[in-house]
Amino acid sequence: MNIEAPTESRTVDELMTRDLLVIAASESALMAWELMSKAGVHHLPVADDEGAFLGVLDAQTVAATWSASGPLHARRPVTELLPDRPPRAVRPDAPIPEAARAMLDAGADYVAVTNDAGGLVGLLTARDLVAALAGVHREAAPPSGGMPSMYRMEPVLPRQTPRRPDGGMPPD
């Protein structure tokens, strides 16, 4: 019989989410919202063009700073929504109570998990902690050793059909 250790005696590595969707720093707040909505996530790590971890954008921040004042506001870069202070982070081998304290100190429902070089290897969220406390076992993605997946989405526009000078449609 395999009895699992109590949550408070486990490490971050055992509970963290490794399979992350990451957004480029140059992307817009609108793109961040679209990615979060489509992927069903509440936290979106932000990386610069070289892949360096800059911080985490959460859905609450995007919603709280949203403005219907026009498209320019929605197109501002996601880096404008990141906090001015460096993101709180813990190492994968940190005990769960240390990570929980980091979340409380930061007033956040997540903490970034970084390696010794400061590279992002995962996120530990309040949801991860609640799942562990409830005894819910999630399939953890195996450690990849690399940067989480970063996606760049490009809009696909309908093909423009040329019109004749008289305004009619060209023959097929």
Results as ranks from 00 to 15, higher is better:
1 M>L: 07
2 N>M: 07
2 N>A: 07
3 I>D: 12
7 T>M: 11
7 T>A: 12
9 S>N: 14
15 L>M: 08
16 M>P: 05
19 D>I: 00
20 L>K: 00
21 L>N: 02
22 V>D: 02
23 I>N: 01
24 A>L: 12
25 A>T: 10
26 S>L: 07
27 E>A: 12
27 E>Q: 13
28 S>A: 03
28 S>C: 04
29 A>I: 05
29 A>L: 15
35 L>P: 05
38 K>R: 14
38 K>F: 08
42 H>K: 11
43 H>F: 06
43 H>E: 00
44 L>G: 08
44 L>R: 07
45 P>H: 06
46 V>K: 01
51 G>T: 06
51 G>A: 04
54 L>W: 00
54 L>T: 02
56 V>W: 02
58 D>T: 04
59 A>Y: 04
61 T>L: 05
63 A>H: 08
64 A>W: 02
64 A>K: 04
65 T>D: 03
66 W>C: 04
66 W>R: 04
67 S>K: 09
70 G>L: 12
71 P>N: 01
71 P>V: 15
72 L>S: 05
72 L>Y: 00
72 L>A: 10
73 H>M: 01
77 P>C: 03
78 V>D: 05
79 T>F: 12
80 E>Y: 01
81 L>T: 09
83 P>T: 05
84 D>F: 09
85 R>I: 10
89 A>P: 10
89 A>E: 09
91 R>C: 06
92 P>E: 11
92 P>I: 11
93 D>S: 14
94 A>F: 01
96 I>H: 12
97 P>M: 02
97 P>H: 01
100 A>Y: 02
104 L>E: 11
104 L>W: 09
105 D>A: 13
105 D>E: 15
109 D>S: 11
115 N>E: 09
116 D>P: 02
116 D>Y: 00
117 A>S: 04
118 G>R: 10
118 G>P: 13
121 V>L: 04
122 G>C: 06
124 L>I: 14
125 T>K: 09
126 A>H: 11
126 A>W: 10
127 R>S: 06
127 R>T: 08
127 R>I: 00
127 R>E: 08
128 D>M: 11
129 L>D: 12
130 V>E: 00
130 V>T: 01
132 A>H: 05
132 A>W: 07
135 G>A: 08
139 E>Q: 15
140 A>K: 15
142 P>V: 15
142 P>E: 15
142 P>Y: 11
144 S>Y: 05
144 S>L: 06
146 G>R: 11
146 G>Q: 13
146 G>E: 11
147 M>W: 07
148 P>L: 10
148 P>G: 13
148 P>S: 14
151 Y>K: 15
152 R>I: 13
153 M>K: 14
158 P>S: 03
160 Q>V: 14
160 Q>K: 13
163 R>L: 15
164 R>C: 04
164 R>P: 03
165 P>N: 10
166 D>N: 15
167 G>L: 15
167 G>H: 10
168 G>R: 15
169 M>Q: 13
170 P>R: 01
171 P>Y: 03
